[in-house]
Design a protein around this nucleic acid. Structure first.
Lengths: 361, 361
DNA sequence: ATGAAAGCGCTAACAA
DNA sequence: TTGTTAGCGCTTTCAT
């Protein structure tokens, strides 16, 4: 006789299911029920506690017991419930990674660096994308923190006040990456974009270019591009120079936009002798335009971008650029999460300027 | 602003902390303690249950009570604990997305489609990357399932037996994407790569090319590229033709590799009149090589790739390609997770062939 | 080496 | 409209 017969199935839709296990009610074995430790325990005849120990390689368990458990777990196809485990142990092996975009070429490489280091630690990265929108970033951060990750890695130093506050009081290591020109919440790993802009300007001036134009994508929230431009103009000013033209575009294929922007600038300011781009993709488009137009690169006109995008190796000329240390940034950030040093650390990396074939030298 | 010490995993390391709240022991108010519903409850003078209702916009709560609660939560900076919530409610708003690579250009676009649809549903994508390694895929799937997501989206139809078994018995909607040439676990959304290869071959033959070479990246686990090639050769065979040469490469910048491979093939088989590439990036490299070498494209030699990569718009010529319907695949897959239809569905999409400027016509 | 009991922070179900 | 109670599935602690 089964008292259980009268009890509604847990999975039966529409019938209110009591949550408690009534003492006299054997749970009806549902073939589609998600397996629990208890199932493995019953199948192997070992207590739940010992099963748990085996599955986590914790504590001392005799070899035969271990075998029984592992076989039962395998046979059943048991997948542990990390939600319950995390709640009980107060420990979550997740690291939140918040980045503005995946199509940017830059961030996949940062991810590679992060994964490379985390792989050895049992920590797992979880990616969130903000599309360069501060309010979206705030909600991504909120969602992530609500899973109580072991650490957070976030691109940039600019966030909403609420986001900063949440991160600051989360009680976990926070690493802001890519940029160090600002005030970090906790740790920071990156380069000085201001300095990078300055260095590029100095190199361009040193090569003798004087009529310099800037071409950038219109990204109100790309603070790093802004800082590079600020540093660039600062260095020009110091040399008594200033930009002779500037052009902004948004949307679409970067390569194509680069061509169009470049054509527009050259039409408007035929006497420019250098084109400084906010990133390599539009720079590459500009380079293709200049070559197609038969301009003398880098003799009469020079070009430079930013990022050192390897993807573009293979173009007719190698665009001058600066490596943003993406891989290393990812590695160091992950290492900080893994080590969780007590003291906040700011790690500045130093990009190298690659003159390529588009700055005369 | 800076954080102090990262919170130790167990709040008080070294001091054996009793887990139970002994009736007479007031918990010591730790300023760095992670906030709970109880804290908000105490701060607002409202029961935990009602606080919970307010924070989830559930059930009827009077306006004044709601206000009190929201203000207390905001003032404290409370971030809910989704781990506990998920365990109690048996519901997790996460969707696992398992893809081979982020640098492939293809997958970010799939992600865009997925996000666009999920954004309206309260579900959140969580990305896992496998680097085209089956065992890595298996472990990524295992990790994800252990968080009990509401659904899984996985690139490809080929998985380890263990991975298939886990997915099949997870009791959640599973969508295998990109490819429909095979046996889906549950739902599938994608194109027939076999057919895509066939179509491209037919178009090439129709344009009169006869001495055709294949150039691909060496990726033992890129099953979709393999299927395209199989379909391609099948169509050649049907027309009494076969590949006159083939070349494989691995690693490095795709653009550069494309150039090198192309140079190698042309040196070895100077009489080829068509180069069929396994993807657009190496195809673009090949195109740049051909143009630099002064070859007559598409008159004497034609080229084609695969994917319809928009990024490459802006090259001197538009490479012939086929759109892989990435955005739409992402959208449909997400919709299937959101709708969770009882019946397994296979959705075939049909890529369009873009002849571009590199097939004569 | 193994087991029993309590409870992690929240929410479903029920009661008031 | 609000509160009370009993778990969700696991791990910590402590006992054996």
């Amino acid at each position: 006789m089964r008292l259980g017969q009268a009890r509604p199935l847990a999975l039966t839709k529409g019938i209110p299911s009591p949550r408690r296990n009534l003492a006299l009610t054997k749970p009806i074995p549902d073939p589609r029920h998600t397996l629990t430790l208890r199932d493995v325990s019953e199948a192997s005849g070992v207590s739940e506690m010992t099963v748990s120990r085996v599955l986590r390689n914790r504590g001392d368990v005799s070899a035969p017991t271990r075998e029984k458990v592992l076989e039962a777990a395998r046979a059943l196809g048991y997948v542990p419930n990390k939600i319950a485990g995390a709640l009980a142990s107060q420990r979550v092996n997740l690291v939140g990674v918040v980045i503005p975009s995946l199509s940017n070429m830059v961030f996949p490489e940062v991810m590679t660096g992060i994964s490379a280091v985390l792989d050895g630690t049992g920590l797992q990265p979880v990616v969130g994308v903000t599309n360069y929108q501060p309010d979206r970033e705030e909600s991504v951060i909120y969602e992530m923190l609500s899973w109580r990750p072991s650490g957070m890695i976030i691109a940039g130093l600019e966030h909403t006040d609420a986001a900063r506050a949440m991160l600051a009081r989360a009680g976990i290591p926070i690493v802001e990456i890519m940029d160090i020109d600002g005030d970090p919440i906790n740790h920071a790993v990156g380069i000085s974009h201001r300095r990078a802009g300055r260095q590029m300007a100095e190199a361009i001036l040193a090569a003798g270019y004087r009529r310099i134009a800037f071409l950038g994508t219109q990204m109100p929230n790309d603070h790093r591009a802004k800082k590079r431009l600020a540093g660039f103009e600062e260095a020009l000013a110091k040399a008594g120079q200033s930009l002779v033209d500037r052009e902004y575009y948004s949307g679409g294929s970067a390569l194509l936009k680069g061509r169009e922007m470049t054509a527009a600038v050259l039409a408007r300011s035929p006497d420019v002798d250098f084109l400084y781009y906010s990133n390599d993709m539009i720079g590459a488009g500009g380079l293709l335009h200049c070559l197609a137009a038969g301009l003398d690169v880098p003799g009469k006109i020079g070009l430079a971008g930013f990022n050192g995008v390897e993807l573009l190796d293979g173009l007719p000329r190698k665009l001058a650029s600066m490596d943003a240390c993406r891989l290393e940034i990812g590695r160091r950030a992950a290492q900080l999460i893994a080590d969780a040093p007590a003291e906040a650390q700011v790690t500045e990396l130093f990009p190298t300027l690659q003159a390529g074939d588009t700055i005369r030298g």
